[in-house]
């Protein structure tokens, strides 16, 4: 029973970071309707960014967010103007292949710049463990999930209580309708891409405090995020969070009770089973005509 509680705690802690990663994707996909297969590589870049900034300035990785978050916001706008905007009306397969090309560029660009070595940082709390109620929880995970949680709350406040946030939601619900009430759709899209990448920046920072980074880590992260977003249901931010926790739980449980190799198998299997039962994801609200 004690191990089970420990596993549940670990699952929740991982789940919040996953949720933040996937929310970045969810916002971009939900608002722009664009399939971005380079999402994982954005996270990979954020991890490198976090590591280099904190090494260079000798600060805690979380402090590096002061530089990294605005940088990624701009990055999002640039990527939107340079690539995403041109892909908005392209068929899905073109979006997938083009963003896959982007993923290639990031991956091998990172390889050129940082080599294929695994890189990680150690912080003052890297090896610290919190011992509470008979459970052992390491600090990097605690901090990352607290930060992720705070950012998720900020994100929701932003989307529900600011003018721009409401505009983003309006646009993601109906592009044409939003245009009619005078919202500048392209500006909103650019901002949504920026906000999405802000989530990516923070999740990359959080991830870098306990996970080492290498140029190809993005492939795995990309699939992970997509599985979470689709599982939760497109267009449902709550669904994304639930999806993230489900996947993180699965990983931890299967890793402990069966075999670490099989964790990936488990979440893909769960993904397929849930989609067979609920083709629009757990919280997929949009009823589509068959």
């Amino acid at each position: 029973m004690e191990t089970f509680i420990q596993l549940v705690i670990n699952g929740c802690l991982n789940g919040t970071t996953y949720a933040l990663m996937a929310l970045g994707l969810s916002i971009i996909f939900g608002t722009l309707g664009l399939i971005n297969f380079a999402h994982g590589d954005f996270i990979m870049l954020a991890m490198y960014g976090s590591i280099f900034i904190s090494l260079f300035l000798r600060v805690d990785p979380y402090v590096s967010s002061i530089i990294l978050v605005p940088l990624f916001f701009l990055f999002g706008i640039v990527v939107y103007k340079g690539l995403f905007k041109r892909l908005l009306d392209a068929p899905e397969e073109s979006q997938i292949i083009a963003t896959f090309g982007l993923s290639f560029v990031f991956q091998f660009g990172a390889m050129l710049a940082f080599s294929t070595d695994y890189k990680s940082i150690s912080t003052s709390y890297s090896a610290e463990v919190l011992h509470i109620w008979g459970q052992y929880i390491d600090y990097p995970h605690i901090f990352s999930s607290i930060v992720a949680l705070i950012l998720i709350i900020i994100l929701f406040l932003f989307l529900y209580y600011t003018r721009i946030g409401r505009a983003i939601r309006a646009v993601s619900e109906q592009r044409k309708g939003a245009m009619m009430i005078g919202i500048n759709v392209h500006r909103i899209y650019a901002i949504a891409a920026g906000v999405g990448l802000c989530c990516v920046a923070v999740s990359g920072i959080a991830l870098s405090t306990y996970e080492s980074v290498h140029p190809t880590i993005g492939i795995h992260l990309n699939l992970l995020c997509w599985v979470i977003v689709v599982l939760g249901g497109i267009g449902s931010l709550i669904g994304t969070i639930v999806g993230a926790v489900v996947i993180a739980m699965m990983e931890v449980m299967v890793g402990y009770y069966f075999e670490t190799t099989l964790t990936t198998f488990a979440y893909f299997a769960i993904f397929l089973v849930i989609l067979m039962v609920r083709p629009n994801g757990i919280f997929g609200i949009k009823e589509r005509k068959a």
Binding site: I35, E92, E93, I96, L223, W226, V227, V230, E259, T261, L262, T264, F265, F268, A269, F271, L272, L275, M276, P279, R288
Partner: peptide, 28 residues
């Protein structure tokens, strides 16, 4: 059988999931 009832992009993603699940199984 598992994926053809899904709409376009979900189908693409599910086929990736199948291939990846198979990769992990064979690796194991």
């Amino acid at each position: 059988f598992a994926t053809f009832r899904l709409r376009a992009f979900f189908f693409a993603l599910s086929t990736i999931a199948c291939a990846e699940a198979l990769r992990v199984l064979i690796t194991y």
